[in-house]
């Protein structure tokens, strides 16, 4: 159960990301330059404001944090030196750890599939990634035309290259999982 309001939200994000969201004075430069703003349910400057208000339930369930592409345009332009994209990372990680009902489950599923591939092989392989993600996303037949073109161009490697010491990679995942981020 996630409380609607957390007076500690700003502090918790600072502990996680080192960012002082309270410094935001709502100039909206982040939202003005955001390439994905058109698809968001909260604009980046609104996310900053809601963090100041401590409205954690709304934030941890929003689409915006997952749609953020981490292009870092906002972080680069913020006049108060807030790494806005870093705050988005912090909110994403909190949403997963607290088991929030995330706004974009498909995007979470993609990240999960991507990381499971690395845990398995130590490297990313497009075929393995598709195999993990597509059936779960319910979009198995999307991109069949593209897949055919990729095959022809030799872009799909059926024999994945992998790390020899896969135990070492698994140990990293185990250690990071235990720490809870």
């Amino acid at each position: 159960m996630i409380n609607n309001i957390s007076p500690q939200l700003d502090k918790e994000l600072e502990r996680r990301t080192g960012q002082k969201v309270r410094d935001c004075y709502q100039c909206r430069k982040c939202s003005a330059g955001c390439p994905v703003a058109f698809a968001m349910d909260l604009l980046p400057h609104e996310v900053m404001k809601l963090v100041q208000y401590g409205l954690q339930e709304r934030l941890l369930g929003c689409s915006t944090v997952w749609l953020c592409a981490s292009c870092e345009t906002c972080s680069t332009r913020c006049p108060n030196d807030i790494d806005v994209a870093g705050v988005m990372d912090g909110l994403r990680q909190m949403a997963l750890e607290k088991g929030a009902a995330v706004g974009q489950p498909e995007i979470v599923l993609f990240h999960d599939s991507f990381l499971r591939g690395i845990k398995l092989l130590g490297r990313t392989n497009e075929t393995v990634l598709m195999g993990q993600y597509k059936p779960l996303s319910g979009r198995l037949l999307d991109d069949m035309g593209l897949a055919a073109v990729m095959m022809l161009k030799g872009k799909i490697k059926l024999l994945p290259r992998m790390v020899k010491d896969r135990k070492a990679v698994r140990r990293i995942f185990d250690a990071a999982g235990k720490s809870g981020g």
């Binding site: 996680r16 981490s70 990372d89 994403r92 990680q93 997963l96 979470v108 993609f110 990240h111 999960d112 991507f114 990381l115 690395i118 130590g122 490297r123 990313t124 790390v163 020899k164 010491d165 070492a168 990679v169 990293i172 995942f173 250690a175 990071a176 999982g177 720490s179 981020g181």
Partner: peptide, 25 residues
Amino acid sequence: PDWSCCGASSGHMTNDLLSVSLPGR
């Protein structure tokens, strides 16, 4: 020798320690 994946966006978007430890190896 025996390099592994950096974790890319999916790493830093979901797990902070993982996102630094994968490149850390």
